[in-house]
């Protein structure tokens, strides 16, 4: 299965990114990691986080960067490359602990033609 992971929504923590990539790799024959923004909310390089995760988990993946709107960029990429499943971190919470579905996740859920998995 050809799996596309999107990382770098505003509230994605490094731990969430690692968990999401790991979860995607479990079902992927072919893995693509799409980086949605250059830096995480606290200014860390997402390239570095992704590279470290792939290295530590001994995973092979092609890494892509999405320019512009992350939701539509992900859906476009999935359609262009015959992706079977999109995987996103879906466990972001507010200070209170409420699950929050951000705009990127919502856009992908509503507009993707593939299965979408939210990892918690």
């Amino acid at each position: 299965m050809n799996v596309l992971v999107g990382v770098g929504s505003p509230n994605d923590s490094p731990a969430a990114i690692e968990q999401t990539i790991q979860r995607a790799a479990m079902v992927a024959d072919e893995l693509t990691v799409a980086i949605l923004s250059p830096e995480s909310a606290d200014g860390e390089s997402l390239d570095a986080t992704v590279a470290t995760t792939l290295d530590e988990q001994d995973l092979t993946a092609s890494v892509r960067h999405i320019e512009g709107e992350p939701g539509s960029g992900l859906v476009d990429l999935a359609e262009a490359e015959a992706v079977d499943e999109i995987v996103l971190a879906g466990g972001q919470t507010s200070p209170m602990g409420k699950i929050r579905i951000d705009n990127t996740v919502e856009f992908v859920l509503l507009n993707a033609h593939t299965t979408v998995t939210l990892v918690r």
Binding site: T93, S94, M96, G97, K98
Partner: peptide, 8 residues
């Protein structure tokens, strides 16, 4: 009566 995942 849970809302947005809480109470767990």
């Amino acid at each position: 009566d849970r809302a947005q995942g809480i109470p767990p």
